[in-house]
Design a binder for these strands. Structure first.
Lengths: 127, 127
DNA sequence: CTATCTGCAAAACATTTGCTGAGCA
DNA sequence: TGCTCAGCAAATGTTTTGCAGATAG
């Protein structure tokens, strides 16, 4: 994998970000430094970087995928109203043994767990 | 809410199905009975029925949304390889109290939990 | 040098929407 | 009969892809 200018800047920006941005948000960010970068390049690089395990695609159920500058798994909280994603403070603690007991046909490889909620901003707006 | 022919058949088919179909799969199913139904109608009805709480949109992270003929929450297993969705045997058992401790800014409303795995068919193919 | 990568544009795909005419209640 | 709904097609939004030229190693 080559370290191109584009790839380097995408990675830098994503690592700096705490907001778990979408591809388009990253694209907008990066364009301030590389005005001619194309959205296709951003998508391609996010895909490669996550396949390499350097970043991760967040398994969120919204319409747009979101990305995380780290690849270590941790719990996310998602705002049901605006889609914002935030890291949670607690570690999940799941009894996988109990949960997978009885699932004899599937080969279980993991769980997907995330908290749902309303973020402070949306909470304020709706009141 | 009116009970049109289209809505009735979509609901019937979905209730009979155990495969948690996508909108297009439902569309294909229903067309055997109503050849002129449009995909837009299927989407509109699935949306209305799930807003009414009669069915549910499954919160899966694939590209296509999937639907469930029941609205009571239960655990799903998802095949990471082909996207198939199946009901799990066990009930999740999460210590929400512990998990939400420290999340003071978000108003937590729920969790999203699903098992990931490889289904028997994909398991066979990849070996 | 050359295999990988970029920018661009078009394609692909899921989903939504505007409109007009049809049909449930 | 009136209001909701269906069918159709076009629009939307996200992501992928083909291609020809650029560039990292």
């Amino acid at each position: 994998m080559r370290l191109t200018k584009q790839r380097k800047i995408i990675l830098e920006r994503l690592k700096q970000s705490r907001r778990h941005p979408t591809a388009v948000q990253i694209y907008d960010e990066v364009r301030s430094e590389l005005p001619n970068i194309s959205l296709g390049t951003v998508y391609r690089n996010l895909d490669i970087l996550s396949k390499e395990g350097i970043i991760s695609k967040i398994e969120t159920c919204g319409d747009q995928k979101r990305f995380d500058g780290t690849s270590d798994p941790h719990l996310h909280i998602i705002c049901s109203s605006c889609g914002k994603v935030q890291d949670a403070h607690q570690e999940p603690d799941i009894d996988m043994d109990r949960l997978t007991r009885g699932e004899t046909d599937f080969k279980i490889t993991g769980v997907r767990l995330e908290l749902l909620g309303i973020c402070p901003e949306c909470n304020r707006e709706n009141n």
